[in-house]
Simulated scan of single mutants.
Amino acid sequence: MLVGVPKEIKNHEYRVGLTPAGARELARHGHQVLVQRTAGTAIGLPDDDYAAAGATLCDTAADVYAQADMIVKVKEPQPAECAMLRRGQILYAYLHLAPDPKQAAALVKSGAVCIAYETVTGPGGGLPLLAPMSEVAGRMSVQVAAAHLESPAGGMGLLLAGVPGVAAAHVVVLGAGVVGTHALQIAVGMGARVTAIDRNVGRLRELDLIFGNRITTLCSSAHTVEQSVLDADAVIGAVLIPGASAPRLVTREMIARMRNGAVVVDVAIDQGGCFETSHPTTHAKPTYVVDGVVHYCVANMPGAVARTSTFALGNATIGHALALADQGWKRALADDPHLRRGLNVCDGHITHEAVALALGQPYLPAEQLLAPAQA
């Protein structure tokens, strides 16, 4: 199979879909790898490293899309990229379709086989291809909150850890999955006063065993969310329903009652966001202010630490990339129910139930498209 790696074109996106090590693995399996020139140079992965790994270099994204059987990316294809996809071509990337009907329509129109990292499941549960970026975003979220609590960034002028005689900032983390757990780790490490809110009491028990009396755990309800948000200096939105739009846990009215100069970081913005006042921003202009509250809603947070993120993502995605290249998409998806959960759009149909529900579109189970391969 010919595997293509275009350069990412989303605003301030420096990650790359395949490292030289990943290209070498595919080449060892007998596949051709086509990489757009300078795809990885911004993060210290020069073209020569890809060539040494057995990849062929080309000048434009159009060359990649025209020749490749499978496109390996990081972020969702932009409109110009969607237009270059063709029927039967595999797209393997983050898609986050639930809040993005325009992208979904473009992918349906293309007829491509679109596999979303964020809905591939794991044998032990969880979302193993989303997890590394959730780890990065969770850790970054507290750094970002701390930076934007500073006065020059529009915050109230608060040091997250406080100092002797002055109280530490109160950080509230909504959601205790991968993002939330890593946010808690950094917030506790930086000396903040920390509250974790989740609806899963079993998960809260686990966090209590991990962090002990260094955090407060609360079971999620409208009351506990409201009371905690109103007392917070920084709120991290870390909720996720796989494939679906994020629930809006924090209302506009709550935002209006928060302290001036407080900060909210919406890590769930890729799935629509969990604050009613959220809308996507970019690294070029990451924040805006609503009712005196600083909102950080960058839709590709891990892109700011692109080298770390690229290697973490490559570790997680290369196994399925090899399976798709070795077996073809029909056999690979038929043989692996977890990879099959990643199929969001295929042959003009939406094939993930939560995505279809969020978009209000018809749903065709992936199994119906794979019947010949499963026979």
Score class of each variant (00 low, 15 high):
2 L>M: 13
3 V>R: 11
3 V>L: 12
5 V>C: 14
6 P>F: 14
15 R>K: 10
17 G>Y: 08
24 R>Q: 15
28 R>E: 15
31 H>A: 09
34 L>S: 04
36 Q>K: 09
42 A>D: 00
42 A>T: 06
45 L>S: 08
48 D>T: 10
51 A>I: 15
52 A>N: 05
56 T>L: 15
57 L>Y: 13
58 C>A: 15
60 T>W: 08
65 Y>F: 15
79 P>G: 08
79 P>T: 07
101 P>Y: 03
104 A>C: 02
106 A>P: 08
111 G>L: 05
114 C>P: 11
118 E>K: 05
118 E>M: 08
124 G>Q: 13
128 P>A: 13
132 P>M: 01
139 R>G: 09
141 S>R: 10
143 Q>M: 05
152 P>E: 00
156 M>P: 05
159 L>P: 06
160 L>G: 04
164 P>W: 14
166 V>R: 08
167 A>H: 02
172 V>Y: 06
173 V>Y: 01
175 G>L: 05
175 G>D: 06
176 A>Y: 10
189 G>W: 04
196 A>I: 03
199 R>D: 13
210 I>F: 08
211 F>P: 10
211 F>R: 01
219 C>L: 14
220 S>W: 11
225 V>W: 00
228 S>I: 04
240 L>K: 14
245 S>D: 03
252 R>H: 12
254 M>Y: 07
255 I>F: 02
256 A>T: 02
258 M>E: 01
259 R>K: 10
259 R>W: 03
267 V>S: 04
268 A>T: 04
274 C>G: 01
277 T>G: 11
282 T>V: 08
283 H>G: 02
294 V>K: 02
298 V>P: 03
299 A>S: 07
300 N>M: 05
306 A>Q: 08
318 I>D: 00
336 D>W: 11
352 H>V: 08
356 A>L: 00
356 A>N: 03
359 L>N: 02
363 Y>C: 05
368 Q>V: 08
